[in-house]
């Protein structure tokens, strides 16, 4: 037994000596095999020897052999990690942990979609659902049902791209409101995002196609106060809690009373008369809104004596331009990745 113990101690010392000379993984593997090879390794051979011992001695001897095995396994694996860490590349700049890490790479969402989802999420939290509809519309849904009589000059404010006498590219997403009201009974609480079209030549503030989000709530007892409450909450969530907001009378054929919603100029907060963003007024127009015109409700067979509603709409690019101080609306459709990718961290 003493003999075995001494042999094992020597094996450990020999192993440590051999290991100190190891410089790469290949020689490490060789040294390891001397001791741990399944067929001819020292550990294996020792275990073979143990078979000849009497059972009462075998357990004790087994522990001694195992201690050798543990010693070898632990030192080999420790050295293995060390060698791996000093592989070529790393070795060249040993210890420079300031080198860039391996970042994941992923694509970026388009800023308009990002901003649209931001808007959608605020309204979803307020119990709104999302409706969509066709981009190619009939004159009826785009104009007549929304209380634009044929040949009324109000149509001039919605310069239209026509497919035929009756078909056009929708100038707003309001036709989807009409379709929703035709299909559903109140209460209705929807927002309608989507592409809209105008006959405009592209310039920094106009595009022939842009994105809108419109909203509609119809129920018994909906008031102008509800409109104000909903939009104020929306704007304060989208921008910030202390945002100054004003509602000012306006005109849209499909709402009565109608209101334009202004928010304080995010750039000068009304403190610069020469401000290029707000023209010195301190206000920036952000939403059109109003109480649904009784004629519009009648057009979809909702009794305006029983029900009332509010509607609102905003341009997504315009709002994003204001929020981030983007000077030119055309940037959104150039799809320059240096522009688009910036917003993914927003």
């Amino acid at each position: 037994m003493k003999d075995l113990k001494a042999r094992i101690e020597k094996l450990k010392r020999d192993f440590d000596k051999a290991l100190s000379g190891v410089k790469d993984e290949k020689s490490l593997q060789e040294v390891r095999n001397i001791y741990l090879s399944r067929k001819r390794g020292a550990v294996k051979l020792l275990f073979e020897e143990l078979k000849a011992l009497k059972p009462e001695k075998r357990a004790q001897a087994g522990q001694l052999v195992n201690s050798l095995k543990k010693h070898v396994v632990a030192k080999v694996s420790r050295l293995k990690v060390k060698l791996a860490a000093s592989k070529p590349g790393v070795r060249a700049r040993k210890g420079d942990l300031t080198l860039p890490g391996v970042r994941g790479y992923w694509g970026a969402p388009h800023p308009v979609v990002l901003f649209q989802q931001k808007i959608e999420n605020i309204f979803i939290a307020m119990g709104f659902s999302i409706e969509e509809g066709p981009e190619i519309e009939t004159d009826y849904y785009n104009f007549e049902a929304l209380n634009f009589p044929p040949h009324h000059p109000a149509r001039d404010d919605w310069d239209t791209l026509y497919i035929s006498d009756d078909l056009l590219l929708r100038t707003h997403t309001s036709p989807v409101q009409i379709r929703a009201m035709e299909r559903r009974k109140p209460p209705i609480r929807i927002i309608v995002p989507g592409k809209v079209y105008r006959r405009e030549t592209p310039d920094p503030t106009h595009l022939p196609m842009f994105y809108q989000v419109e909203g509609l709530a119809v129920d018994k007892g909906i008031t102008f106060a509800d409109l104000k409450g909903t939009l104020e909450h929306f704007l304060k969530t989208l921008f910030y809690e202390k945002l100054k907001i004003r509602f000012r009378p306006s005109f849209f054929p499909f709402t009565e009373p109608s209101a334009e919603v202004d928010i304080e100029c995010l750039v000068c907060k009304g403190k610069n008369e020469q401000c290029r963003v707000c023209g010195g007024s301190g206000w920036k127009e952000i939403l059109g809104s109003g109480m649904v015109d009784p004629q519009v409700l009648k057009n979809v067979n909702i009794d305006p004596e029983q029900y009332s509603g509010f509607a609102f709409g905003m341009g997504i690019e315009r709002t994003a331009m204001f929020a981030y101080q983007i000077p030119d609306m055309r940037y959104f459709f150039e799809n320059d990745l240096r522009f688009n990718r910036q917003f993914s961290i927003k």
């Binding site: 979803i124 307020m126 119990g127 709104f128 659902s129 999302i130 209460p187 609480r189 929807i190 709530a217 129920d219 909906i222 008031t223 102008f224 106060a225 509800d226 104000k228 409450g229 909903t230 104020e232 909450h233 004003r246 509602f247 000012r248 009378p249 209101a259």
Partner: peptide
Amino acid sequence: YDKIPVHFPPLRVPEPPLD
């Protein structure tokens, strides 16, 4: 319009889930 109060419309019936 500035003197009209601010109120939130009660949700009487839930809207359908997203499609």
